[in-house]
């Protein structure tokens, strides 16, 4: 077996030690720090991007909140305006209606009074005219002179019976 030639051990071990040491120095001083730096850079970049994204997200959330609160404010304000306008309108309408109703009631009362007056006048005139006519008829027919008051009395009694 060529592996068990003791004469080959010395050069094998010596060159293994030399080359392995050089390899270790090359890797630990040159190659590995470069890869470590690349990986660290990537990690830093990713972490930075992630935190930036998180910040942007927070800012967006805040903006959304502001927007929503403003929207709610505007809505409330609009609702208030509409309500107050309606209330004002209703109050105005009520006032006008009340005035109108009062006017109408006054006019109706006035008219009633007028009608009542006219009716009273008409009925008193009618009585007078009836009494007149009755006294004239009585005078013509019975030749009895009756006063107007007597006729009225009689008429009233007659209308009672």
């Amino acid at each position: 077996m060529p592996q068990l030639q003791p004469g080959d051990f010395a050069p094998q071990l010596i060159w293994l030690a030399i080359i392995f040491t050089l390899f270790y120095i090359a890797l630990s001083r040159l190659a590995l720090p470069r890869i470590a730096r690349v990986l660290a850079d990537r990690k830093a970049k990713l972490d930075g991007d992630l935190s930036a994204a998180r910040e942007a997200q927070a800012a967006a959330d805040q903006q959304a909140q502001i927007y929503e609160s403003e929207l709610a404010n505007a809505k409330a304000k609009g609702n208030g305006t509409i309500r107050s306008a309606r209330e004002k309108l209703e109050a105005e309408l009520n006032d006008k209606r009340r005035v109108l109703e009062a006017e109408l009631a006054a006019k109706a009362a006035e008219t009633e009074n007028k009608v009542k007056a006219v009716l009273e006048k008409a009925s008193s005139q009618m009585e007078a005219m009836t009494a007149d006519v009755v006294s004239d008829i009585v005078k013509e027919l019975a030749g009895i002179d009756v006063t107007e008051n007597e006729v009225r009395e009689a008429l009233r009694q007659g209308s009672k019976e």
Partner: peptide
């Protein structure tokens, strides 16, 4: 001591040089 440069030494040099070159070039312009 016999410290002759042998075929084994040469293969070790080739292997370690290739690996070092690969790792260094892989990060060149990373």
């Amino acid at each position: 001591y016999d410290a002759s440069f042998t075929n084994a030494s040469l293969w070790m040099v080739i292997a370690t040089t290739l690996v070092t070159a690969f790792l260094v070039f892989s990060t060149a312009g990373a």
